[in-house]
């Protein structure tokens, strides 16, 4: 397909049998995933929106029209389209647009970093548990089950409540929340892959466990683990917003979508559109992450 070689050539083996040779040249797994993903308009649209939000967050100081922390009595709860306040002003007259742009920094950080950390930790734990099996598996997975028994929002509140408010503790709490489910998925796919004969064959060639995992297991479990982890990003953003809303995340005057939602709550009857903006951002971002991971799943769902 990508690299058409030998049209329909034939090859004759030792026993004199003609082995038919197809025309297609092999392409890697990730290449074919990308090709399928590229044909999915919904995934592409979501990816584009997320890219926009990401770029805005990264280049916030360059893009934001105003200082997100400068208050102004004149623009308190200003409606959309006010001069100098395109998306209105918040309860202290700060520019909503600038605050939304800056707020994406913390929300995206809280959405992505804990998931990345949890994938590294939970994924390793799950792969180890699944590959070794037996008592090690029991020990790791039962510890995970203890955490898994609590609803994730409650667990996040409990952990950050115990550690105290703040960005760092929020990140730790969210990471801990995501580890058990990711470990569980990793364990189950690893157990499944381990039972295949190609792992046995590799073992029969005398490979050490680490080499075996790296060459033969990882490639086969990474896809499902990443798909699952990507569904956790939107959840992470929502829980992070919830923590800020409850005063357990970042503290004012920091620009954060969850926190903004909390402080604008009292103004919902005065200017409902402006008050709803941070919520809309949270909704759009987590929706995009969800739909993108959905598209990723169907793109990766090729039983080779």
């Amino acid at each position: 397909m990508a690299n058409g070689t030998a049209g329909t050539s034939r090859f004759v083996d030792v026993t004199g049998t003609q082995v038919p040779v197809g025309g297609a040249r092999a392409q890697g797994y990730w290449a074919s995933v990308w090709k399928r993903l590229r044909r999915d308009p919904v995934s592409l649209a979501c990816a584009a929106i997320l890219l926009l939000i990401f770029l805005a967050a990264i280049f916030a100081p360059l893009i934001a029209p105003h200082d997100p922390y400068r208050t102004s009595v004149r623009f308190r709860l200003a409606p959309f389209g006010s001069p100098d306040r395109v998306l209105g002003g918040d309860e202290l007259g700060r520019d909503m647009l600038s605050r939304l742009i800056y707020g994406g920094r913390i929300s995206l950080l809280m959405g992505l970093l804990p998931v990345v950390m949890a994938t590294l930790i939970g994924g390793s734990l799950g792969i180890i548990a699944g590959f070794i099996g037996g008592k090690t598996n029991m020990l790791i997975m039962r510890v995970m089950d203890v955490f898994y028994a609590f609803p994730s929002v409650l667990l996040a509140i409990a952990i950050s409540g115990a550690l105290g408010a703040g960005l760092r503790n929020g990140l730790i709490a969210l990471t801990l929340v995501h580890i058990p489910p990711i470990a569980r998925v990793s364990e189950s796919v690893t157990t499944q892959v381990r039972s295949f004969d190609f792992v046995e064959a590799a073992r029969a060639s005398g490979a050490k466990a680490v080499t075996l995992i790296r060459v033969h297991v990882l490639g086969n479990v990474l896809g499902p683990i990443l798909i699952y982890a990507s569904t956790k990003i939107s959840l992470s953003i929502i829980i992070a917003a919830g923590l800020s809303f409850l005063g357990l995340g970042v503290s004012p005057p920091e620009a954060d979508w969850g926190l903004m939602l909390a402080t604008l709550r009292q103004s919902i009857y005065v200017n409902p559109y402006v008050a709803a903006l941070p919520g809309a951002m949270i909704f759009i971002t987590s929706m995009c992450f969800n739909m993108l991971s959905d598209g990723l799943r169907s793109a990766m769902d090729v039983r080779l």
């Binding site: 295949f196 004969d197 190609f198 046995e200 590799a202 060639s205 005398g206 490979a207 086969n220 080779l304």
Partner: peptide
Amino acid sequence: MVFQDSYSSLNPRLPIEETIAFAPWV
């Protein structure tokens, strides 16, 4: 050893030359 199930005895994510070269490399 040569296994019975030719589907599950080859790593689906590796080109076959890598599968064959794995043991000598180890």
